[in-house]
Nucleic acid binder design. Structure first.
Lengths: 116, 116
DNA sequence: TTGACATATTCCTATATAGGCATATATAGT
DNA sequence: ACTATATATGCCTATATAGGAATATGTCAA
């Protein structure tokens, strides 16, 4: 088998640095495609294709505005990533030395995350 | 071009669900390979290959113990992911709408969904 | 040494990219 | 209708998988 599709979940979608860059821009407010093209210095088709992936995993939404398509961040789709990685914060932050219960809870969340 | 290598960074390494499962087990303590094989129900070569990827991005370390190779979590390699995704937490958690700094200090004591 | 156990590596194949480029689609203005 | 603008899609190719199976490597014990 090959790798899972980039549209399989937020983890795969966000593994691509360009897509994280797009999200970082959108974090500052909604933008039409051409704004992203200009700000990121990427080719327009590539931006559109990356936006399609991000949209398929639900991390961005689109809105039509005249002949422009305005993309908007939907950060909630990133929550599974946050929930998963948060459990590991204790391994580098001393504040989390005795939060074993939290760790177990988040691991269980990861269990039923596979079917998304 | 193809997708970036899974060993390119922690984002790509962790995009694979099986590798997250491995890390979730190792979060409970170091383990030899065969333990992971048994606990996760994966084939041994696949486990070894996933561990190689995780090791190349620095998220696990190995130690020789007789004929076993004991793998140990090194969560610090996940910090870039945590740092990146953390900036988006405010988009789904109303707790971050105001009083950012204060609530950041307290948030680990709450475990309900996004507060009410 | 021989054998059993533990782990890593190699070879194979189907699949999915990401970027470059051309082109299709859609909308607005004249 | 025609044109310019804005965006999406299709086609192409090199590349990198992930899993399966077989095999290689390494280590202990008798």
């Amino acid at each position: 088998m090959a790798r899972a599709a980039t549209t399989a979940d937020a983890f795969n979608a966000v593994a691509e640095p360009r897509r994280r860059q797009i999200l970082d821009v959108l974090a500052g407010g909604e933008r039409p495609v051409n704004d992203l093209v200009g700000l990121l210095g990427m080719a327009q088709p590539q931006v559109s294709k990356h936006l399609r992936v991000l949209r398929e995993v639900g991390v961005v939404d689109v809105r039509n505005d005249g002949r422009q398509r305005v993309y908007r961040l939907n950060g909630r789709a990133l929550k599974p990533i946050h929930d998963w990685v948060r459990a590991y914060e204790r391994t580098w932050s001393e504040r989390f030395d005795q939060l074993d219960v939290v760790l177990k809870e988040l691991k269980e969340k990861e269990e039923d995350d596979g079917g998304k």
